[in-house]
Design a binder for these strands. Structure first.
Length: 566
DNA sequence: GGTATCACG
DNA sequence: ACGTACGTGATACCC
């Protein structure tokens, strides 16, 4: 594949927020080539699209180089992404793991270099060059060797097209989003943090008075003792691992009817979550140079093909409550620009309609009906015009339950009805949506046969547990077999849409920038003169991304901040 | 490092 | 009889 092999390694100060390369520095370090000189030598090679390059987690290197004036071209293969497509359920897709799994080779680990691991490990710039060199060269060597093997495996598993046309092109899109970052209003976050803090102080005092002692409210252990031993409130359930009393939101909500203290603990939980996870953490992550927040979009984490976001996670910014929305209001566009949010409407239920070819479901989407009202009408046998808000709410929960492979027990719990009633609802559902029933039966049978789930674009997830003798394990796999093709296909489609939107924006030299991807939503910042063009372009590319048996629908909203664009 | 909790789709 | 809706990441506590 390559005429020449060039291995490149560089030191990166890991604890710097945004990748700062540097020379090795320690007492007695030999003289090294200057950074600028090294970069100048590498530049023509790295920028030449005719020289194909292979990398491991290439997005990382891509960002480092780009921040130093080198724009990579000719990136043809990322071993991390290949390993992920071959088995997305693996815990890690790092080079050490890949070498072990595909080359049966044990690499020199970072721990071997420094003698320490985790937080105590020395940074790479302090590793002696005579140790760093074989480590770094092995990296390049292994990457290229693994590429050959992985490429053959992709071909065998029918994953090459998905790899070449979706996952590889997506790297550049994600790189752009990460580098661009997003602005948060620091003053707004600071004000929120202060407000939350004052409220927390007051609530804490009242809780201590009610408990007649002070304790750590954030400790579930201490809280359990107060609630169930000192105050003698009724125990609702144990924790998942049975280590103690559960004090989760469900339990506290029940107890709130009996006593003032649990009600205040709920309030305390909400506020301390908003303060510590969002207001305070986001302020800390504003980059000193760019003044913006740069998340990482992880392309090899989820078992279904979705992206994940970390450091910080920008895919779980609050929206459901008014106070939570205040956090979202702090996400703002560049001065004078607008925030634009483009949301796939009911993409997972549309995919279900596509796969199942269910008559009622398909017709509902073709005629742009309200899908939850339709389900309510079918399940509860009432004309749509007579469906109340509460019936619609229940139908919405049923619709979601279908996608997750719900049981009567699960539905009963989330609707707070009897299991018998829940079973009746489910029976009604499948009696009306016959295509969905057949689809679920078929998908479970197919998964049993092949031992894996497959999405519309051919992404696979191994599910050997579907043939397990252990009932729980098998049932879990059956639910996964229902959910994965749906959630995974939605992930496939939004990835393709992201690539197409980005390409279209670029080819028209537009300034509109893609900021975030949140599973069925894309967020952009748009200069005022591009609002109309961007809206049309994004809607068109997203809705026509794939020709399904039902139409795809995208809602676009615009506002001064992310909350207003909803 | 494991557990419990809670934020999102 | 038995556990029970899919997929994530961050925080705090506690051993």
């Amino acid at each position: 594949m390559l005429a020449q092999i060039v291995g490149i390694s560089f030191s990166v100060q890991q604890d710097e927020a945004f990748y700062i390369p540097c020379t090795h520095r320690y007492l007695g370090v030999p003289s090294q080539i200057e950074l600028a000189k090294a970069l100048a030598l590498l530049k023509p090679v790295l920028e030449d699209p005719a020289l194909p390059k292979v990398g491991q987690n290439i997005k990382y290197d891509w960002i480092v180089f780009e921040r130093h004036g080198i724009k990579l071209n000719g990136i043809v293969f990322d071993t991390m992404l290949a390993s992920y497509l071959i088995n997305p359920s693996k815990r890690a897709h790092n080079l050490d793991q890949i070498a072990l799994d595909f080359l049966d080779h044990k690499t020199i680990t970072y721990e071997d270099l420094t003698g320490k691991k985790g937080k105590n490990a020395a940074t790479f710039d302090t590793v002696p060059i005579e140790k760093a060199t074989p480590y770094a060269c092995e990296d390049a060597d292994i990457t290229l060797m693994a590429c050959q093997i992985l490429n053959e495996k992709l071909e065998t598993l029918g994953l090459s097209k998905l790899f070449r046309e979706v996952e590889m092109p997506l790297v550049s899109v994600l790189k752009g989003m990460e580098m661009n970052g997003v602005t948060v209003d620091k003053n707004k976050l600071h004000e929120l943090s202060t407000t939350f803090d004052h409220q927390l102080k007051t609530i804490e005092q009242t809780i201590y008075e009610l408990a007649d002692e002070s304790f750590n409210i954030n400790s579930t252990q201490q809280l359990g003792k107060i609630l169930f031993e000192k105050l003698g409130l009724p125990v609702q359930k144990k924790t998942k691992k049975k280590t103690g009393y559960s004090t989760d939101v469900e339990v506290l909500t029940t107890l709130a009817e009996l006593h003032e203290l649990p009600k205040l603990v709920l309030r305390n939980r909400t506020l301390s979550k908003l303060k510590s996870t969002y207001a305070d953490a986001l302020m800390e992550l504003i980059h000193p140079e760019t003044g913006r927040i740069h998340t990482s979009f992880n392309q090899t984490v989820t078992a279904t093909g979705r992206l994940s976001s970390s450091d910080p996670n920008l895919q779980n910014i609050p929206i459901r409550t008014e106070e939570g929305k205040e956090i979202r209001k702090a996400f703002v566009p560049r001065p004078g620009w607008q925030m634009l949010s483009a949301d796939y409407s009911q993409i997972e239920l549309r995919i279900l309609a596509h796969y199942s070819e269910d008559k009622i479901l398909s017709k509902a989407f073709e005629e742009e009906e309200d899908i939850h009202t339709r389900t309510a009408s079918e399940v509860f046998q009432v004309f749509p015009s007579f469906i109340t808000e509460d019936l619609r709410r229940q139908a919405k929960i049923i619709n979601f339950g279908i996608i997750y492979g719900m049981s009567p027990f699960g539905l009963a719990k989330s609707l707070n009805i009897s299991q018998k009633m829940a079973k009746a609802y489910i029976d009604n559902y499948f009696g009306r949506y016959k295509g969905v029933k057949t689809f679920i039966e078929r998908i479970i049978e197919e998964t049993k046969q092949s031992g894996q789930s497959t999405t519309l674009l051919g992404r696979i997830r191994l599910l050997p547990e579907i043939n397990s003798k252990n009932v729980n394990e098998r049932k879990f796999a059956e639910r996964t077999a229902i959910n994965t093709p749906i959630q995974g296909t939605a992930a496939d489609l939004i990835k393709v849409a992201m690539i197409q939107v980005e390409n279209a924006l670029k080819s028209q030299n537009m300034k509109t920038a893609m900021l975030l991807s949140v599973h069925d939503e894309m967020v952009f910042e748009v200069p005022p003169e591009e609002i109309d063009a961007a809206t049309a372009l994004i809607k068109d590319k997203m809705e026509t991304v794939w020709d399904l048996n039902v139409p795809l629908k995208v809602n676009i909203e615009i506002g001064d901040n992310w909350a207003a664009a909803h």
